[in-house]
Simulated assay, not measured.
Amino acid sequence: MHSSNVRVIDQIHQWLSAGHPVWLATVLETWGSSPRPEGSLLAYVPGLGTVGSLSGGCIEEDLLTKLASEDNIPTPSIHGYGQTDSQNARLALPCGGQLRILLERLEPEQAGLFLELFTALEQGQCVSRTVHLRSGDLGLAALAGLAKPNKPGLYEQPDTITHTLGPAFQLLLTGAGETTRCVAELARAVDFSVTVCDFREEFLEGWNMPGVELVKTFPDDLIRERFNTPTSAIIALAHDPRLDDMALLEALTSKAFYIAAMGSQRTSARRRERLQELGLTAEQLERLYAPAGIPTGSKTPWEIAISIVAQLIAVRNKLFSD
Rank of each mutant, 00 (worst) to 15 (best):
1 M>T: 05
2 H>I: 07
13 H>N: 14
14 Q>S: 15
14 Q>Y: 13
19 G>P: 09
21 P>R: 02
33 S>T: 03
37 P>E: 13
46 P>R: 02
48 L>N: 10
48 L>E: 15
55 S>Q: 08
55 S>M: 07
56 G>C: 02
57 G>D: 04
61 E>W: 09
62 D>S: 15
65 T>M: 00
67 L>S: 03
73 I>C: 05
74 P>Q: 09
74 P>I: 07
78 I>V: 13
83 Q>I: 15
87 Q>M: 04
88 N>T: 08
91 L>S: 02
96 G>P: 09
97 G>M: 00
97 G>K: 01
100 R>M: 10
101 I>A: 00
113 L>M: 11
113 L>W: 00
113 L>G: 07
120 A>P: 02
122 E>H: 12
124 G>Y: 12
126 C>F: 12
126 C>V: 14
128 S>F: 09
142 A>P: 10
147 A>W: 01
147 A>M: 01
148 K>N: 13
153 G>L: 15
162 T>L: 07
165 L>K: 04
170 Q>G: 05
176 A>K: 01
179 T>M: 03
180 T>K: 10
183 V>N: 06
184 A>W: 01
189 A>Y: 00
193 S>D: 12
193 S>A: 15
193 S>K: 12
201 E>P: 12
203 F>P: 04
203 F>T: 00
205 E>C: 15
207 W>G: 06
208 N>R: 15
211 G>A: 02
211 G>S: 04
215 V>S: 07
217 T>V: 11
217 T>W: 11
221 D>E: 14
225 E>A: 11
226 R>D: 14
228 N>K: 09
231 T>N: 10
232 S>C: 11
236 A>P: 08
237 L>F: 13
240 D>R: 08
241 P>M: 00
245 D>E: 04
246 M>R: 13
247 A>C: 09
254 S>F: 03
257 F>H: 06
259 I>V: 11
262 M>C: 07
263 G>W: 07
265 Q>M: 11
279 G>K: 02
284 Q>R: 08
294 I>H: 09
294 I>E: 07
295 P>R: 10
295 P>V: 05
304 I>C: 01
306 I>G: 02
309 V>L: 06
319 L>R: 14
319 L>E: 13
321 S>P: 00
